[in-house]
Design a protein around this nucleic acid. Sequence first.
DNA 1: TTCAATGCAAAGAATTTGCATACAT
DNA 2: ATGTATGCAAATTCTTTGCATTGAA
Lengths: 166, 166
Amino acid sequence: MTGAPTPLGEALHARGLRLTPQRQRVLEAVRALGHGTPEEVLAHLRAAGGTPAVDASTVYRALALLEELGLVARTGLDRRADSFHPVEHGGHLHLVCDGCGSVAEAPADAAGELAAELRRRTGFSADVAHLALRGRCAACRRDEPGDGPGDGPRDDPEHHPREGRP
Amino acid sequence: MTGAPTPLGEALHARGLRLTPQRQRVLEAVRALGHGTPEEVLAHLRAAGGTPAVDASTVYRALALLEELGLVARTGLDRRADSFHPVEHGGHLHLVCDGCGSVAEAPADAAGELAAELRRRTGFSADVAHLALRGRCAACRRDEPGDGPGDGPRDDPEHHPREGRP
DNA sequence: TTCAATGCAAAGAATTTGCATACAT
DNA sequence: ATGTATGCAAATTCTTTGCATTGAA
């Protein structure tokens, strides 16, 4: 027993860093949420009320570190702040609806094709494993058949109480 | 002559809003930059030194309005803040390199296929006309053949002084 | 024991808002 | 004239940082 059973423990140990309960809790929170901004992670931890309590600054520091360690990925899921999600949870697209704020998922294969073509043609290697696409979900499209001013994004957050948190 | 020759003038007039020099300048700035965050737009206007001077709050308000009018689009080009760009400039992908911060462009046709498939399979209508993809450009990939800790994003902003502004 | 990590509090950066005034219509 | 838009400054919100203390190895 050398003492680094978990991926997090290993990654930290390999860098001479330390496995703290706070870092474990932050990672767990990201996994529990599926995806979330630093604030959402913090809120989740506070709501859970576990021990030890985790300070906001620690959440930010931990998320940055976890990203560096390759355990969580960062995407522009939220217009405001960055969202983090577990890498195990990768390999799919996030479909963010600008109408109701819902976040759906889709298999990544279609995007994989796009990525392959881009790399072939431009040499750019796109990170499609954690890609967020913005648009309108089916329900919102039905509600707004294309009337009104232009057909740009409307301002109406709170439509379909579906999956994901706005 | 009724008095609404430009797209901006028309859009404003149609809503009973007013065509001000500030709004014109903000739109011009976005067009001149190709794409930019509110701060970049503000900086551009200040550097240009034209008249009238535009206040930061006015830039924010104008950008939000221009987006609503469908004259500019918003994307997650910058990790920090939202980037705005002219809609006429749409129809292509933004390839944002996490290594050096460069922003290249690619034709949108490949993504159009992805969007079509998504809409077919999930009903989600993705806005691929103004899509930003994150990844590593060819130059950065060459520099970092995959050594080091995992192969997650490194922290080294300032590599290849290429196109775009980090 | 030793040095990294945390918490706390303060600093910073970015965006929003209230209100009197200026100006497009 | 009328009511919208602006500028200014204060208020908010989000994120980062310095430093003494705690705690993992």
